[in-house]
Design a binder for these strands. Structure first.
Lengths: 156, 156
DNA sequence: ACATAAAACTTTAAGCTTGAAATATCTTAC
DNA sequence: GTAAGATATTTCAAGCTTAAAGTTTTATGT
């Protein structure tokens, strides 16, 4: 998967395989760096940050299943992360009258402040880590990935 | 992190942030699909496949620390994955005369055969999943990611 | 109304992941 | 030759991750 300096493969489809390998390595490298900085600077993790970021956009809150879908992770996974965020006081579960199976998850005031701080640093890090990508390349690449994504929407 | 349809952010550095979010979402989507297929079709996992792929390139074997560096994961992580591959008979540890701290890890015959089969399917899946990316775009994107990567070499 | 199905969520078991501490071996400096 | 440090690896605790099974609540069909 994360193959690197291979005896360059060739043949049909090899260009896409190579692209995938590069994509994966680049993503993992950046992810590792972000994870490390989140830990060192804010004593938190990427999954927690992801959840906070998702909730920050929606003051009224989200259902667990919305979070799961949005973050592309399993239901049970979200349960654990939200549990920890609740115990840290950054997030709150609110029972709903209409449907007692569900609860709205939203940021607490502390969670909102905390996320704002971390997000500012995060944006700076990304600017630094992707610094060598020109703005033009960034937009072009984003475009390619977007069209790729639309090819995938509603797959499962 | 995996933010999606946000009220599109704007300002300096926002293009790179958006690029990162897209990159991460695309990678995770493909990764999830590969993981699922590896499980369903071959009853294995992505990390195991990564290790087999790394070893396949080097018949004489690799040290644990080489594997760790190459795969961009921690030392302790590799220990666990290799342990499981050994117990499955796909990989073998060989003590070395020179340095008794280290051992060479290499594919067994069964491991080699197993990987060849899985890798063929894997390449097909990538061709399918990235099918909408033209060969030309694939090469261009790969180029961008490569220059990005060289910006990162020898960071840590 | 009542059984059945569907939906939202949690729990569980197994495996992946990291950073830090512990072991064992080798190298270097005196 | 021996102490001190460097290397290679494993172990450990905590957390992330998934798929599958379980629980509770709501919706549907008759």
């Amino acid at each position: 998967m994360v193959a690197g300096p291979l005896p360059a493969p060739s043949g049909p489809g090899k260009d896409r395989l190579r692209l995938w390998i590069r994509l994966l390595r680049a993503t993992r490298t950046i992810e590792a760096e972000l994870r490390e900085r989140l830990k060192k600077e804010f004593d938190t993790t990427l999954p927690r940050f992801d959840v906070l970021a998702a909730l920050y956009r929606v003051p009224e809150g989200m259902l667990m299943s919305d979070l799961s879908r949005f973050l592309l992770v399993s239901n049970g996974n979200v349960t654990g992360i939200v549990d920890r965020l609740v115990s840290e006081g950054l997030v709150a579960r609110a029972r709903r009258n209409g449907d007692r199976r569900t609860s709205m998850v939203r940021l607490t005031e502390e969670g909102t402040k905390s996320f704002a701080t971390i997000a500012a640093a995060h944006e700076g890090w990304i600017g630094e880590l992707l610094g060598k990508v020109s703005e033009e390349d960034a937009r072009r690449l984003t475009g390619m990935l977007t069209s790729f994504r639309s090819n995938w929407e509603g797959r499962e």
